[in-house]
Computed example of a mutant assay.
Amino acid sequence: MSSEVRFTDFKSDKQPTWCPGCGDFGTMNGMMKALAETGNSPDDTFVVAGIGCSGKIGTFMHSYAIHGVHGRALPVGTGVKLANPDLEVMVAGGDGDGYSIGVGHFIHAVRRNVDMSYVVMDNRIYGLTKGQASPTSREDFETSTTPEGPQQPPVNPLALALSAGATFIAQSFSTDAQRHAEIVQKAIEHDGFGFVNVFSPCVTFNDVDTYDYFRDSIVDLADEGHDPHDYEAAKEKILDASKEYQGVIYQDEDSVPYSELHGIEGNMSEIPDGAPEDAMDLVREFY
């Protein structure tokens, strides 16, 4: 860990408003520890969030931040990173924000492989709007709006990422503090888009996917001798719906981030008289 950067440097003076016991506390702590361990500081870190219980995480952390709109955190984070490649960009979201309204942006962010990290707090429910089923809720999960369950299989975000060409896919458990921070750190250090789906239990509205459930169910890939560079082995784990895996599931060692692939250098925010033609070509390519 850098002697100049501490975990506490990323703590805001604003107190989180999450429910006592919410998994998001552990998720955020792991993010801050990972940033400190990689030597980043609040002055070179930019946190982007969307809507949901995770949405105000930029307020609860001390760094540059944007609280965006529902499902749109990833394109904002992409713009920040390409405009200023010197920033460490971390996008935070929830399963509703990222895998429902934002799922299109998720797939295309994976495809572009911009060098940033994406941490999703997956509690398998819409917590902020009082407990509706989310894209990752179980097929038989009963809520006030789905009294007989969603009656459709849950979205597998890891499979979506792999099929879209992800170069880094991982999963962690917010309460397993050290392991969670290690996994997020690896996502930050990855050259490209580092995606981490985090089991982050909702203690208020989800009495199925609880802390006890994950403690009893999680299989750590580090204990199984899993090789994250083996694509076929990663695919097998990702498609195995019978287990809840933790660890780096897939990492492409030959990953080339978008900016390097397209020769994007320098801080666009310092250009005084508008974007140069090559930057406008980049905008046209995106839109």
Rank of each mutant, 00 (worst) to 15 (best):
Y250W: 09
A187T: 06
D223T: 15
D227S: 02
E270Y: 03
G266V: 01
E224W: 02
E182Y: 05
G274H: 01
Y258P: 11
I188Q: 01
F193E: 07
V248Y: 03
G263W: 04
H262V: 03
D216Y: 09
F199S: 10
G225W: 03
V196S: 00
N267D: 13
S255C: 02
Q251K: 07
L221N: 06
Y258R: 11
V184S: 04
V256D: 11
Y211Q: 08
E253Y: 01
R215W: 09
F195H: 13
Y213V: 15
A275M: 15
Y245C: 13
V203A: 07
V248G: 01
E189F: 05
E236P: 02
K243H: 15
D191C: 07
V208G: 04
E270W: 05
E224A: 05
P272Y: 04
A233M: 03
D240Y: 03
E265W: 01
I183P: 07
D216N: 13
T204H: 10
Q251C: 08
N197Q: 05
H229S: 12
T204I: 07
F205E: 14
A187N: 02
D230G: 00
Y213H: 06
G247Q: 04
N267G: 04
Y213M: 14
C202S: 09
D209T: 15
G247L: 00
T210P: 07
I271F: 08
D227G: 01
I238A: 04
D240T: 12
E189L: 14
A241V: 15
I238W: 10
S255Y: 01
D223G: 10
V248N: 00
C202I: 09
G266Y: 00
E265D: 13
G263D: 15
C202D: 02
K243Y: 14
K235F: 11
K243D: 09
F195G: 01
Y213E: 14
D216E: 11
S217T: 08
N206C: 09
Q246Y: 11
Y258M: 15
E265G: 05
K235Q: 13
G194L: 06
K237G: 01
V208Y: 08
D273G: 06
G225Q: 00
F214I: 12
C202M: 08
G247E: 01
N197W: 05
D252I: 02
Y231P: 05
I264V: 14
I271N: 07
Y213W: 15
Y245K: 13
S269N: 13
H226W: 02
G274C: 06
T204L: 09
D273Y: 12
G247V: 04
K186E: 02
A187I: 04
I249P: 03
Q185N: 06
Q185R: 10
D254Y: 14
E224L: 07
S269E: 15
A222M: 02
A234K: 08
E260D: 11
H190P: 11
A222T: 04
C202P: 09
S259T: 09
H190K: 05
Y211V: 15
I249T: 11
S255T: 05
T210W: 02
I188E: 00
A233W: 03
D207Y: 11
I238Q: 07
I249G: 05
I271Q: 14
E236L: 04
S242D: 15
G274D: 09
V219S: 09
A234M: 10
Q185P: 03
A187E: 05
Q251R: 11
E236M: 12
E265Y: 10
